[in-house]
Write a protein that binds this DNA or RNA. Structure first.
Lengths: 192, 192
DNA sequence: CTTAATATTAGTATCAGGTACTAAATACTA
DNA sequence: TAGTATTTAGTACCTGATACTAATATTAAG
């Protein structure tokens, strides 16, 4: 039959997939050493399995993370700002994805929700630089990967360079988070 | 003199640096088009400027972010666990870096601190999967890039599958954060 | 204007890490 | 033992380079 004794080809290819999965920066030459076969065999295997060549793999890793880092770098705002009235209120949305969540439970890690709230709070403040001084907050129910979060921020009070901002996040009208952020704008001696 | 009229070589090389900085995935061939010179000139320029070849650049981007993503992927625990007594208490440390902070102020973004606290709280619980149900917390003073954070977690109470964990984070004995985490272990019907 | 220095272009050989293809040797299996 | 599957071998070719040599432009100075 086909894989009655699960020929070593099958075994090798399975291992090959794993190997390249966890260590994508490996040449065919190195692979043919570790598997004790000729380089042609490795190449046939890659061909059959549809695994691209080393350089292509490197490129993919680079490209993927180049994007990721870019969006992470400008993660001055987490989520998408859809409405804002400076010093008054603002709304942002965030489509949660699998990689924000625990693999097993698909529950979104809390700090993503926190980051969304924090950054929206900062965005509504009409000051170039603000910092979260004190926050007092509640998590309600867990958020699952794929949930679309809607955050609403309201500036409750402004006292000197202190801003009191309330943020509520909900999924389908159901509140999953609320918090009060106290932000401090800092333009004390830092001229510019 | 040397750069009296700032020869076009200088200009080209300056632009070349910028170009490759913002768009590292570009071949010499494309470059010689955009600059209207021969490919050899581009290569001489790269040689003089110490810019590595395309593949090397791709590799660097890939490698850098591969590390980053890996540590981000297994960010099930943020910081380094240095002591733990399951269901009792635990200590972790985290060396903050520039890329956790706002560029201008060097103030560490709140969600990193939150993530550290959250993950330590989870780590001290002797259950495979826990989730933050409700948290009530205070930020004290800002944390600056380079500060070494020490987080201490204590399990205050266990009631059924609910765990009440207090986490305090400090820099040089000075408390910068405290929070109470309510974690829920979920082994309802998910066997294994 | 001529000459020397500088900048640019051309061309060749070589490399890594492959693809694509053909052909031969080995192993397995019915 | 024939027939098929698997593995090796070998060649030509590809891209995006390096390393090197040599020729040609361009520019500046005497």
């Amino acid at each position: 039959m086909l894989s009655d004794k699960k020929g070593r080809k099958q075994i090798r290819q399975t291992k090959l997939l794993e190997k390249i999965e966890i260590e994508p920066f490996v040449t065919d030459e190195e692979l043919c050493d570790t598997f004790g076969v000729s380089i042609q065999t490795i190449r046939l295997d890659r061909l059959e399995l549809g695994i691209p060549e080393l350089r292509e793999r490197i490129k993919q890793v680079a490209a993927k993370n180049y994007r990721k880092v870019k969006t992470l770098g400008k993660a001055e705002i987490v989520g998408e700002l859809i409405d804002i009235n400076l010093n008054e209120d603002g709304i942002s949305i965030l489509e949660t994805t699998e990689d924000m969540a625990f693999r097993k439970t698909k529950i979104v890690r809390g700090h993503h929700i926190f980051a969304m709230a924090e950054s929206l709070a900062m965005a509504v403040i009409d000051a170039d630089v603000a910092l979260s001084g004190v926050a007092n907050m509640k998590y309600r129910v867990p958020v699952f990967a794929g949930d679309k979060l809607v955050a609403k921020a309201e500036v409750a009070r402004i006292r000197g360079n202190k801003y009191f901002v309330h943020v509520k996040i909900s999924v389908n009208q159901e509140q999953v988070f609320r918090g009060k952020f106290i932000l401090v704008s800092i333009w004390e001696e830092e001229e510019e």
